[in-house]
Computed example of a mutant assay.
Amino acid sequence: MRGENKRSVLVGIFVFLGIAILVVGILTLGGQQKKFVKAIHLKAVFDDIGGLQTGNNIWFSGVKIGTVRKINFYGDSQVEVEMNVEKSVSEFIRKNSKATISSDGLIGNKIIVIYGGSTDYPVVEEGDRLEAVMPLDTDKMMETLQENNKNLVDITNDLKLLTGKLAAGEGIVGAVMTDSTLAKNFRSILANLERASVNSNKMVADLNSFTAKLNQEGNMLNDLVTDQSIVPDLRATMENLKATSANTELLTKEFQTITEKLNSPDNSLGMLLNDPEFAKSLKSTLENTDSATFNLNKGMEALEYTWPFNKGFKRKAKAEEKAGGN
């Protein structure tokens, strides 16, 4: 009897321990799955959930706030995810918050991350649907990385080839790097450019100084630019210059007409200037006139000694002497 009682007690103890372990396990799993926590149901529709399963966790600001309750097909090819979210946390989630699919670690289970939302919008309510944002596809990311790696290898090979040519002195850059003469010429060019830059800066400074002087009051150019009273005088001067130019042009035309007439033998002056025969005749006439005048003077001198005029000239001479003595 004692052996049977002892066996029954041991069996009862093991059964009790098994039930206790089962209850603790259920409570633990229920606590992890938020089975015994008041929750609200939120939804999100994705084009692709990337392996998300029922029971996966939901995170908000780095805190686990619920689990995936149900996954259903939606529309033609989309997937609707129903989420259990703790009611105590729902007051921090806004109606304009977004939901995306991420991974728990680099290669961990898929999770849903709720983020964003502004205080201008009200808090979520039972059955609200959040805007779904598709995550970056890992496969596409790996393809992109593979393509980038390939491009990096090509760039490395090209760089290796380029540095080899530079070291061998090929090309302009290689020649400059290996040829000392070209290097000296290049340094000389840089020195000339530096001097040109210095001269340019000096010229700019001089120009600024000259401009500052022009802007000083009392300067003639400054007065021309700023003094409005000079403008009418300048305009009047320009009008006078235009009138003078017009008169000069008219005078030039008149001089040209006179010159044309002087060059023409059809008038007296033109004949005097241009007709050689007339000039020769005029010269002969003048010579004859000069000769006649000379002979007339000789005749007048001889007339003084002739008898009829002798007395008259003597009386004239006496009168001049008497006038000179007084």
Rank of each mutant, 00 (worst) to 15 (best):
T119G: 11
L145D: 06
L159K: 10
L159I: 07
G117P: 02
I111Q: 09
L159Q: 10
D137Y: 03
M134W: 05
P135Y: 09
M134Y: 08
L162T: 14
A132N: 02
V123S: 15
D128S: 05
K150S: 15
G116W: 00
V113W: 13
P135K: 10
G164Q: 10
K140D: 10
T138Q: 12
L162I: 10
I155W: 02
D120I: 04
G164D: 13
Q146R: 13
E126N: 08
T138R: 09
L130H: 03
Y115V: 04
K110P: 02
I112L: 09
E147P: 00
P135I: 06
N149F: 09
V124F: 01
T138C: 04
P122D: 01
D128E: 08
I112A: 04
G164V: 05
L145N: 08
K110V: 05
Y121W: 11
E126A: 06
L152K: 11
G127L: 07
E143C: 01
L130D: 05
Y115K: 00
D128N: 11
M134C: 01
T119L: 14
I112E: 13
K110E: 08
D120G: 12
T144C: 07
G127T: 07
K160G: 06
P122C: 02
L145G: 04
T119V: 09
D154Y: 01
T119W: 08
N149T: 10
E147G: 08
E143D: 15
Q146I: 04
T138A: 13
A132I: 00
L161R: 10
Y121Q: 15
T119Y: 08
L152S: 12
L130K: 00
L152C: 03
D137H: 00
V124R: 03
V153D: 14
K150G: 12
V123H: 10
D158F: 05
E131I: 02
E125N: 09
Y115W: 08
D120T: 07
L145H: 05
P135D: 11
G116S: 05
E131F: 04
